[in-house]
Simulated assay, not measured.
Amino acid sequence: MIDAHIHLDWYKLEEQEIILEDLEKGTIDGVVAVSSDLISCKNVWKLHKKCPYVHPSFGWHPEQPLPSEAELDSIERMIRRHHDAIVAIGEVGLPYYLKREKRSLDVKPYVAVLERFIRLAKELDLPIVLHAIYEDAEIVCDLLEEHQVEKAHFHWFKGAEQTVNRMIRSGYMISVTPDCLYEEEILQLVEQYPLELIMVETDGPWQFEGPFSGQMTHPDMMLESVKKIASVKGISLEEAEEQMETNTKSFYHIK
């Protein structure tokens, strides 16, 4: 299986080595390593050069203070320079949790940053990886439609039923984390969303509860997610595994 969304550069060095070793051994087929800022983009690129099964994605994570124009320009240059080698633009999106902490936050500059990346994804024909949940997802869907971007991945998505239906009609991908084992909201999403539009991810090093409490988040946790998806969809584990792998490889053009 391929982890569709992981912050590999956020792990401690010794934890990175564990994951990289398992990638080399073939225990995991690959990971889509997203970036969060300029330094993160550079570190993710280094991890990709170290291990070809680390598939890089460059972007700027929205749950932080706004970047300078110089930083955004540098990230865009990296995307353009390596657009044939990266698999996507991301993680990008809107600051849902930051807004909850700071009610007075002006989101218009964040929307402008996101739109810049959406335009770039359209120009370079790259998938885009999105941090956009609840009401923010409607704004993002509007932007995607305006710029005619179809290859969109809403990672660890949560949102209203009408938004989910809109995303399904548009053919946008979602990815499911190990919290599908204990979060009813995620289970309902899995039940509603078409199997051919679902991938699995860890969003590591984010740590999970339930059976994963106290553990380092590792891509091998995806197996339990796939088991749960198979159960919800009423299909075999083998069928679910094959579909998840096909979905991820097809969306990210991973051979």
Rank of each mutant, 00 (worst) to 15 (best):
1 M>Y: 06
2 I>V: 12
6 I>N: 09
6 I>K: 05
7 H>I: 05
9 D>F: 00
12 K>D: 13
13 L>E: 12
16 Q>G: 00
23 L>E: 03
26 G>C: 01
26 G>A: 03
29 D>R: 09
33 A>Y: 09
34 V>T: 12
35 S>T: 08
35 S>F: 11
36 S>P: 00
41 C>A: 13
41 C>K: 07
42 K>Q: 15
43 N>V: 11
43 N>T: 13
45 W>T: 09
46 K>G: 00
49 K>D: 11
49 K>E: 15
52 P>E: 14
52 P>C: 00
52 P>D: 14
53 Y>F: 15
58 F>C: 01
64 Q>P: 02
65 P>H: 01
66 L>S: 03
66 L>Q: 01
68 S>D: 02
74 S>C: 03
76 E>P: 04
77 R>W: 10
77 R>P: 00
79 I>Q: 04
81 R>I: 10
82 H>G: 02
82 H>P: 02
82 H>R: 06
85 A>C: 09
86 I>R: 05
86 I>F: 09
90 G>T: 07
91 E>W: 08
92 V>M: 05
92 V>Y: 04
96 Y>S: 04
100 R>L: 14
103 R>N: 09
103 R>H: 13
108 K>F: 09
110 Y>I: 02
110 Y>N: 01
110 Y>Q: 00
114 L>H: 02
116 R>F: 00
117 F>H: 01
117 F>W: 05
117 F>G: 04
121 A>P: 07
121 A>F: 10
125 D>T: 09
125 D>M: 03
127 P>H: 08
132 A>H: 06
135 E>Y: 12
135 E>V: 13
138 E>K: 14
138 E>N: 13
138 E>C: 06
139 I>M: 12
139 I>G: 05
140 V>S: 10
143 L>E: 07
143 L>H: 07
144 L>F: 14
149 V>Y: 07
152 A>S: 09
153 H>L: 11
155 H>W: 06
159 G>A: 04
160 A>Y: 11
169 R>S: 13
170 S>Q: 14
171 G>S: 04
175 S>V: 02
177 T>N: 06
178 P>L: 01
180 C>K: 02
181 L>W: 00
183 E>H: 00
189 L>K: 02
190 V>H: 03
195 L>C: 03
197 L>A: 03
198 I>K: 02
201 E>T: 06
201 E>Q: 07
201 E>V: 06
202 T>F: 03
206 W>D: 06
207 Q>G: 11
208 F>Q: 02
211 P>N: 02
212 F>E: 04
213 S>E: 12
215 Q>L: 14
215 Q>A: 10
216 M>V: 13
218 H>G: 12
219 P>D: 07
219 P>Q: 07
219 P>I: 09
221 M>N: 01
223 L>M: 08
223 L>I: 11
227 K>R: 15
229 I>T: 05
231 S>N: 10
231 S>V: 01
232 V>K: 11
234 G>P: 05
235 I>V: 14
237 L>P: 06
241 E>A: 11
244 M>K: 06
249 K>M: 15
249 K>T: 13
249 K>Y: 10
249 K>C: 14
